[in-house]
Simulated assay, not measured.
Amino acid sequence: MKLTTILKSAAVAAVIASPAFAETVLRVQTHYAPETVSGKLAGQFVDDIQTMSGGDIKIEMFYSSSVVATVEAFDAAANGILDCDMTGGAYQTGKNPAFQFVGDIMGGYDTPYQQLSWLYYGGGYDAAQALYNEYGMQLIGWWIYGQESMSSSKPLNGPDDLKGWKFRSPPGLETEIFANLGASPIVMDFTEIFTALETGIIDGADASGLANNVGLGLYDIVKHATFPGFHSMPSDHFACNKVVWDGLTPAQQRIIDTAMQKLSLQTALTFEKANAEAAAKLRADGVTLYDWSAEDRAAFREGAQAAWEGWAQKTPEARALVDSHKAYLAQLGLLAN
């Protein structure tokens, strides 16, 4: 038998005898439904990772908090039930108030680009990473859809309309700010909003951006909303179990990081267009949109930034993050006077 034939036979035998290709599977949960704008963007994120990795990384995405409640996704990833959490840091303020300032810096930045610039160029990433690592997680990045719109069964023309207004609120700083303004915030899971509005348990909701709220069907029930938003701009995060993340190859980590940065940009750009389109359609459908005056917006920002100080005193990590934001916001001219 010729040497080349022997070598070819040996190579084929080695392939047959080798173990099957082992792909890396990451189990990820998001609170967004797949039909919302954010859900579709998350789907593209999954496709980007799987395509760029050539199938080396597979993402098993669980939408609409289908494995655990939204607020439990972080712990589920840290404990190995999931691998990664695609909700947001503001849901974890019960662990450490500092999470408020990597989740929803209320009354802070005006645009997603400003907020992302703090993370990548304002010292935010290192400060945030220390907090995440303390709880066994690795922050990969943010995807920010812009200012949220409050949805309501009643008019929301300004601060006076908040008096006695019962609304769904995420946990954390927001409940304090709005309670001080006379509203009645009720903390509930993201997935419970539609039913609570439908049954009249709440008058309104702080859920998401305008286009996402349309995808959730909120304006089939209520006919009032704030737009453009001003009060809240959550940093939805992609965060993974640190052991799982450290176990990925540098190439796999780079692929995920690159896909995340694409998701960040595409989320901001997509929602600029999607929110404008949603606003035009909602007006045509009889939904009233309220654009608060500059004075009312300034009053909210001043109240929110004053409330930061109470939270900054809760833990050293919160103090550090508040100081970091204030220094960067001062550079941008966004600190309340």
Rank of each mutant, 00 (worst) to 15 (best):
I6P: 03
S9P: 04
P19H: 12
T24P: 08
S38F: 08
G39Q: 04
L41C: 01
L41Y: 04
L41H: 04
D47T: 06
I49G: 04
G55D: 05
K58Y: 05
S65I: 07
V68G: 06
A69G: 12
A73S: 15
A73M: 12
F74W: 14
M86G: 00
A90L: 11
G94F: 13
F99N: 03
Q100L: 07
V102L: 10
D104Y: 09
G108K: 00
T111S: 07
L116K: 05
Q129R: 13
G136F: 09
Q147I: 07
S149C: 09
P159D: 06
G164C: 08
G172K: 05
L173C: 00
E176M: 08
N180D: 15
L181K: 02
G182L: 09
V187K: 13
A196P: 00
I201C: 02
V214T: 04
H224L: 03
T226G: 00
H231D: 12
H237D: 13
L248N: 10
Q252T: 02
Q253E: 07
M260Y: 06
S264G: 03
S264A: 15
E272N: 08
A278V: 05
G286V: 01
W308G: 00
A312M: 01
P316A: 05
R319K: 15
R319S: 14
A320K: 15
D323T: 07
S324L: 15
Q331V: 08
G333I: 01
